[in-house]
Write a protein that binds this DNA or RNA. Structure first.
Length: 380
RNA sequence: GCCCUUGUAGCUCAGUCGGUAGAGCAACGGACUGUUAAUCCGUGUGUCCUAGGUUCGAGCCCUAGCGGGGGCGCCA
């Protein structure tokens, strides 16, 4: 048995080979001329492979004609150039084996679009949809690119603690980690907790950032990056906030501000370029079904030179724009989303890096410029 | 945390003035076809989110609760 993925079988190079594919039925169309089209997907690619199952197969009437969306099957057959539109290759089955049945009356996923809200109710089946499959593949691609990008530049991948006592720069509300018996404590109505009784004999939290550990490694090993789960207990109900997310933090000794900006720009471009090149089918799906214009927008990020602008000049651009903002633009305050969007989307029409922020709105340890009003970089 | 909005068939939704439930898709049956969100014909489908209240009568009005979505704030 020459096992193959759907991804491989869809490639022209596979024509002429006899392969065995295992996957889940997406759809079946019957021809009364005596054969059926079965589309199967195994997660290896966005597209399905079309299988031609001829009526002469032993289990055609008993099994193949009742295959429905969600069934898992194994198909063995020769890959041939497709006679129809829409696909380069197809498999002419010599055997189709039903591995797992799927009752169409009770299987929730249908051959149509489902809302994300509805799919969340079927969380165990979401990965079988085009959208979630594409997200998983693109995310995998990005993770791979992240490591490749830093490894090529001789950065060390450092693991920083998940459970920690440090609050970093007070970046956000933290999830407390404890082994104290909360039910018992509630019953006793204790006014002050004795953390000496806790697991670490002190308060502990899930990390909000590996920055502090990253910096001490950078000041010993030169260039490091962290990439791992991070937790924020913000009660923020927006699409841009997560309680749990993965964060990348490069920390470099002996880098000046220009070095930092060069790295950031190259990094962003690399991630985007790789995703477009390596996940083209998934990105085309997003562009068509989820967010029209996405590919053009990402290609623009990959192609453009990022604008690098001092904070003070950005304030000047905003104030002279004549644009009415919901939040006033004033030197010394942080920029709101609407200001950032104006700079990137309307004024410069490309990614923008702002630097030399007022020291009053940045962490205390940042390196102060000669003007004593703005800061350039971290303390390393 | 604040504000707005929504909950009806497996899914997406309509439901008028308060009078006892409806369309498309899916499913199922059939027709047709190298098809590809196939197409055409036919069939069935309900705890109208939950609990109270008003009323002769509530999917519809009122109150509370629960769930979903959006915006803002905080924040990344």
């Amino acid at each position: 048995m020459n096992k193959s993925s759907v991804k491989t079988a869809r490639h022209l190079d596979s024509i002429g080979q006899v392969l065995t594919l295992q996957g889940w039925v997406r759809t079946r169309r019957d021809s009364k001329a005596g054969f059926s089209f079965i589309e199967i997907n195994d997660g290896s690619s966005q597209g399905n492979i079309q299988v031609i199952a001829d009526g002469s197969l032993a289990n055609y009437e008993s099994t193949i004609k009742s295959l429905s969306t969600g069934c898992s099957i194994a198909v063995t057959g020769e890959v041939k150039a497709s006679g129809g539109q829409g696909q380069a290759t197809e498999v002419h089955a010599s055997a189709v084996e039903l591995i797992g049945e799927c009752d169409p009356e009770t299987y929730p996923l249908q051959k149509k679009r489902h809302s994300f809200e509805k799919l969340r109710e079927w969380a165990h089946l979401r990965p079988r949809t085009n959208t979630f499959g594409a997200v998983a593949r693109v995310r995998n691609c990005i993770c791979n690119s992240i490591h490749q990008f830093y490894q090529e530049r001789e950065f060390l991948y450092v693991h920083t603690p998940i459970i920690t006592a440090s609050d970093c720069e007070g970046a956000g509300a933290m999830f407390q980690v404890t082994t104290l018996n909360l039910d018992q404590i509630a019953k006793k109505q204790i006014e002050k907790l004795d953390f000496a009784q806790d697991f670490f004999q002190r308060r502990a939290y899930l990390t909000v950032s590996g920055q502090l550990e990253g910096e001490i490694y950078a000041t010993a090993l030169g260039k490091i990056y962290t990439f791992g789960p991070t937790f924020r207990a913000e009660n923020s109900n927006t699409s841009r906030h997560l309680a749990e997310f993965w964060m990348i933090e490069p920390e470099m000794a002996f880098y000046d501000l220009d070095d930092n900006m060069d790295l950031a720009e190259a990094f962003m471009k690399r991630i985007v370029t790789d995703a477009l090149a390596r996940c083209s089918e998934d990105m085309e799906f997003f562009d068509k079904q989820i967010e029209p214009g996405l590919i053009a927008s990402l290609q623009h990020v990959a192609d453009s030179s990022f604008v690098r602008l001092p904070y003070t000049e950005a304030i000047d651009v905003l104030q002279k724009s004549g644009k009415k903002f919901d939040y006033p633009v004033e030197w010394g305050t942080d920029l709101q989303s609407e200001h950032e969007r104006f700079l990137t989307e309307e004024h410069f029409k490309c990614p923008v890096i702002l630097f030399n922020y007022p020291k009053t709105i940045k962490p205390f340890y940042m390196f102060c410029n000669d003007d004593d009003k703005t800061v350039r970089r971290g303390s390393s």
